[in-house]
């Protein structure tokens, strides 16, 4: 079943066309790793999917329904498409629990006890039940990112977008975040993941997309794209990455 259907997506910043006509169908349960050099449009593509950036052309269909441009529509869509950012974007004036509760209280208008119970469950799921009362300033990068994942999960999204979730982390903290994402994958959640962790993409993704110049340059199973890339630019990109992963 197709959850999300993207066709003819174009996004420009000023005169610069960053996304140049992308078509993409996301099936339920798919885990898509999006790879590409910096500037290839990976993050912009992801940010267009939940309308953090407004596409300049093209259509996005969620569960068979075309998404329009009114704010009320967009806020509904964003509740169904969760997003996790490279820089976490936790709310510094709220505790970990407060961060996870915020959407439930402000957007869903859930009662305080219900929201609290739900938020506690989500924090426990990412292994941070004991950090509920901590403010983000007192959490490690890995813990912050796990709170951010719990915050997204609390809204029961049908699709999760991860925008380089481990790129801002110290190397020793990457594992705990990837562990949480892997457990979500094992639950069968649908997700799109922009990442530089090729090993993780290989083991967790069901499909790999390689972006270049704002278009899908190559896509296929992890084995096809990562082990046996057909196109030159994909090969060059992978070769560059292997230089550093000794």
């Amino acid at each position: 079943m197709t959850i999300l259907k993207v066709s003819g997506l174009i996004k420009r910043f000023g005169g610069n066309e960053v996304i140049r006509g992308i078509d993409l169908d996301v099936e339920k349960g798919e885990r898509i790793a999006v790879l590409g050099a910096s500037g290839s449009g990976k993050s912009t593509l992801l940010r267009c999917l939940n309308f953090m950036e407004m596409p300049d052309a093209g259509t996005i269909t969620l569960d068979g329904k075309l998404v329009g441009h009114r704010e009320a529509e967009l806020t509904l869509v964003r509740q169904r498409i969760g997003m996790v950012f490279q820089q976490f974007n936790l709310f510094p004036h709220m505790t970990a629990l407060g961060n996870v509760m915020e959407g439930l209280r402000t957007v869903r208008r859930m009662s305080k006890p219900d929201a609290e119970a739900r938020a506690e469950r989500e924090l426990a799921r990412v292994g941070l039940a004991d950090k509920a009362a901590h403010y983000p300033a007192h959490l490690s990068g890995g813990q912050k990112q796990r709170v951010a994942i719990a915050r997204a999960l609390a809204m029961d999204p049908e699709l999760l977008l991860f925008d380089e979730p481990t790129s801002a982390l110290d190397p020793e903290l990457v594992g705990e975040v990837l562990g949480v994402i892997r457990s979500l994958a094992e639950e069968g959640r649908t997700m799109l993941l922009v990442t530089h962790e090729l090993g993780f993409a290989y083991h967790v993704a069901t499909r790999v997309i390689f972006l270049a110049d704002g278009t899908i340059h190559e896509q296929g199973t992890p084995d096809e794209v990562l082990k046996h890339p057909r196109r030159e630019r994909t090969q060059a990109f992978l070769a560059r990455h292997k230089e550093f992963s000794l």
Binding site: R78, N89, T106
Partner: peptide
């Protein structure tokens, strides 16, 4: 207040008004 705070608020479905009132103004 960093752009990311607006992003974080909008990503969980907040309107711009809610993001301003709950997330940006308090900071």
């Amino acid at each position: 207040v960093e752009r990311g705070q607006w992003d974080g608020a909008r990503a969980i479905g907040m309107t711009n008004g809610q993001a301003l009132r709950r997330i940006v103004l308090p900071q």
